[in-house]
Computed example of a mutant assay.
Amino acid sequence: MTHGKAPSPTAVRRLLAPAWVVDLWTLAVPLAAVYLFTSAGSALSGSARVDLGYALVNLIIVVALWVFVGNSGVLSFGHIGFVAIGAWTMSLLTIEPLVKSNLLPTLFPFVQDASASPVVALIMGAIMGGIVAFLSALVLMKLNGLEAGIATFALLQVIVQVLTYWDKIGPKSGQSMVGIPASFDLPVVMSIAMLVIVVAWLYQQSTSARLLRASRDDIAAAPASGINVFKHRVIAFAVSGALAGIGGALWAQTNRVVQASQFNLDFTFLTIAMLVIGGMLSLWGAVVGTIVISTLNHFLGLLEGGLEIGSVTVSIPSGSRLIVLGLSLILILILRPGGITNGREAVWPFEKKLDFLTQAQRTFD
């Protein structure tokens, strides 16, 4: 008896669900996770809701970082600079001009008088982050490997130093911008975070992102195949810079006090750790890493302040959060270098059924 060739896993998958359904699943799962995480956090205490606000902002920043790092394979230490630009833009456009004239008397006149609604300021934060990222990428994206990482770190330092000492666009060195109105509540921040995930997912599906991932997998072969690696890195860097600007604008609204020194190595380390622990190569990993580390951060914060469990108060030394985060990162890199998700997107629930059907067909053949 003659048997036909066993169908490929892709062919069997199409029998179970169309390809577009499987693709949409990789978007639906992260969105559902963010919604459930926000709903659970909102039902807890006041401190949990405050931490939840920061967690959603960090989620936006980590997803923005993933857009470039996950698709290009080049580690960036400079994205917190774009976060700072977004925060700066939001602050300067939403602080009342009268307050600015008293607190920031050395500003350029057009900056002094500038005012916008929080929504417009949010959009401007994205635009400014994207522009600076694009211009930076024209210089930096010709580098590879360690050189590129060091260059992005230098970029962060340049941005922070400019914001620290140029009092024509901000406060004098050592001072802060205050009086930033809190205009977005948790449901709105959650909605914006979900929108950022959608934008990141759409970029992931684009031809540019696919070609960039091909260069990530083999940087030597990609140019030989006709892929313009520089061009696609610039696009990814600009998109991720714009999304990071959104994260910075929302961070300013959440924190309500903005100073250049806040955008430091601790902030950079936190966001990179969230991405690496979740899974650097997938959007799902960026979401999982942020949720896991944010939850751990909140719990450790409670322990640092003394957590009452029955008649016993459990506490840990101040500063333990960074130690635990560092140890977690080391363990992940040793035991599971691909992160919690192993760099995979959310798995279609019928994947096991797919494997079973494929194996069964091959057995009969």
Rank of each mutant, 00 (worst) to 15 (best):
G248F: 01
W251N: 04
A252C: 05
Q253C: 08
Q253D: 07
N255W: 01
N255I: 05
V258F: 00
Q259W: 04
Q259I: 09
S261W: 09
S261I: 10
F263V: 01
N264H: 07
L265N: 06
D266I: 03
D266Y: 09
T271P: 02
A273S: 15
M274H: 13
L275F: 10
I277W: 10
M280A: 15
M280W: 08
S282T: 02
L283T: 07
W284Y: 15
G285I: 01
G285A: 08
A286W: 04
A286P: 10
V287F: 13
V288K: 14
T290A: 15
I291T: 13
I291M: 14
V292I: 14
V292L: 15
V292A: 15
I293S: 01
L296S: 07
L296K: 02
N297F: 12
L300A: 04
L300P: 02
L300T: 10
G301K: 03
L302E: 11
L302T: 03
L302D: 11
E304R: 13
G305I: 06
L307E: 05
L307K: 04
S311T: 12
V312F: 14
V312N: 12
T313H: 07
T313D: 06
V314S: 04
S315L: 10
S315G: 11
S315Q: 09
S315I: 08
S318T: 10
S318I: 06
S320A: 13
L322D: 14
L322C: 05
I323E: 06
V324N: 03
V324P: 02
V324Y: 01
L325K: 00
L325I: 12
S328W: 01
L329Y: 03
I330Q: 01
I332P: 11
L333F: 05
I334R: 15
R336N: 12
G339F: 03
G339C: 14
I340P: 09
T341C: 10
G343P: 01
A346N: 01
A346T: 02
V347S: 14
V347P: 05
V347G: 02
W348P: 00
P349L: 03
P349I: 05
F350S: 07
F350N: 07
E351A: 15
K352C: 04
